[in-house]
């Protein structure tokens, strides 16, 4: 039993070593590079030269940065609200005792979540592309779709709607995660509560507003915050579909970091941008812990 003292640490070491090696070291590197003027070609000389906070000053004058920040805010808020809302609805629908084939439904709903972003991206391009897409082609011959206002072709090329299209696709892809989290929450509400309410004569609406929603609030909150954190870093589907275009209209912050680093080769500036992205993430994380604290205190 004397050995016990170092066993717990030993068990953690492999995980920690990997995380530090692949996450912390690079982060430190990003921080240093953010203070340099450095391009991809400077990697060879190990180099670039230190320019202090110049990159950061540049960020504040960079209209593409503000543009990407704005896109991120739109993309994240719509995606998160949509995912959590529909996740809740679907979870609620699936909770009903009369619903058959539950696991079939759940399995199919998971599809967009488990499919690779490349496949998802291509599939949606083939649906939305102005000249080759399925939807524009179908809409041009279908009065029904025209009536719904779906007979447009500029899904991916109209700068004022492309970011919303991306958000809807992200809702489509991320809903299942919320559905799983909410379902777990719903399952934690004892059936006896509902039965008691029913005996007291509460209708379905009242049961929803008086029991389900209040008891689900913590789950919904956690779900909201987790999804927010995840969504700020999502850019692969956008990269595949539009690479941020047209004219940066769908370029979110994380994609802007990627494009600056790898398409433009501006490593120094991209690293500074990535530190800003990290700060945004940190802000959300702090919010997450504050809310968790607050909840714990209220429960205690």
């Amino acid at each position: 039993m004397k050995k016990r003292k170092w066993i717990p640490i030993l068990l953690i070491v492999p995980a920690l070593a990997l995380l530090i090696f692949v996450m912390m070291f690079p982060l430190g590197w990003a921080f240093v590079t953010g203070l340099k003027s450095m391009t991809l070609l400077d990697l060879m000389t190990g180099g670039g030269r230190f320019t202090g906070l110049k990159n950061y000053f540049k960020i504040f004058r960079d209209r593409l940065f503000y543009n990407s920040l704005r896109n991120s805010l739109i993309f994240v808020s719509i995606s998160v609200i949509g995912q959590v809302f529909f996740g809740f609805l679907i979870a609620l629908a699936l909770k009903n005792k009369f619903v058959r084939f539950k696991s079939f439904f759940r399995g199919i709903f998971l599809l967009p979540w488990i499919a690779s972003s490349v496949i998802v991206g291509y599939s949606w391009i083939y649906i939305l592309d102005a000249n080759l897409g399925f939807l524009p082609t179908l809409a041009s011959v279908s009065p029904f779709l025209q009536m719904l206002g779906l007979n447009r072709k500029d899904w991916l090329t109209n700068p004022s709607i492309v970011i919303y299209v991306m958000s809807v696709i992200n809702i489509w892809k991320g809903m299942p995660f919320s559905m799983l989290m909410q379902s777990a929450g719903l399952q934690s509400i004892p059936d006896t509560l509902y039965e008691a309410a029913r005996v007291d004569g509460a209708g379905a609406w009242q049961r929803l507003t008086k029991i389900t929603i209040p008891l689900m609030t913590p789950f919904i909150l956690i779900n909201l915050i987790m999804t927010t954190m995840i969504t700020f870093n999502v850019y692969d589907v956008i990269l595949v579909m539009t690479s941020g275009g047209p004219n940066h209209a769908s370029e979110v912050l994380s994609l802007y970091v990627y494009n600056t680093g790898f398409t433009m080769g501006e490593l120094g500036y991209a690293s500074a941008l990535s530190i800003i992205l990290l700060l945004v993430n940190l802000l959300v994380t702090i919010l997450y812990f504050m809310i968790l604290r607050y909840r714990e205190r209220r429960l205690a």
Binding site: L19, M24, P26, W29, N233, L255, G261, S274, N281
Partner: peptide, 13 residues
């Protein structure tokens, strides 16, 4: 650590 965005570390990695 999980909060570190992939976009932030991919260039250093």
């Amino acid at each position: 650590l999980q909060m570190i965005p992939a976009a932030s570390v991919i260039i250093p990695i």
